[in-house]
Amino acid sequence: MIRLVPNQATQITRSEKVTFTFDGTPVTGHAGESLVAALMRAGYLALRNAPNDAAPRGAFCGMGLCQECTVMIDGQVVEACRTGITPGLTVERV
């Protein structure tokens, strides 16, 4: 079929795979990519529970504003969309 917008997925090369943990479970991603991207690819969309109604929430704005994708790294709340993954990174739910 003619595509005016070609599929370029195979033309992308990525860095080596690294393993980090999310809530104790090993997850693989590419070194240096955003935590949100790696978690999304691994099927982790619900990253936290909202206050008051405990409903699941995940990445939303993708630019560090909405605070929906916050996770805990080394006791500090950070935005997963603004955090790059490194080997052995320990990520927990808030």
């Binding site: 990519e33 955003s34 991207a37 999304m40 699941p56 990445a59 939303f60 704005c61 993708g62 630019m63």
Partner: peptide
């Protein structure tokens, strides 16, 4: 609209440009 897997259009472009990753 708060269900995980719903992201902003602009958020999606950030995902494409930075990570070349699909939302689903």
């Amino acid at each position: 609209w708060t269900t995980p897997g719903v992201i902003g259009l602009a958020g999606a472009t950030a995902l494409f440009k930075q990570s070349l990753t699909l939302p689903g």
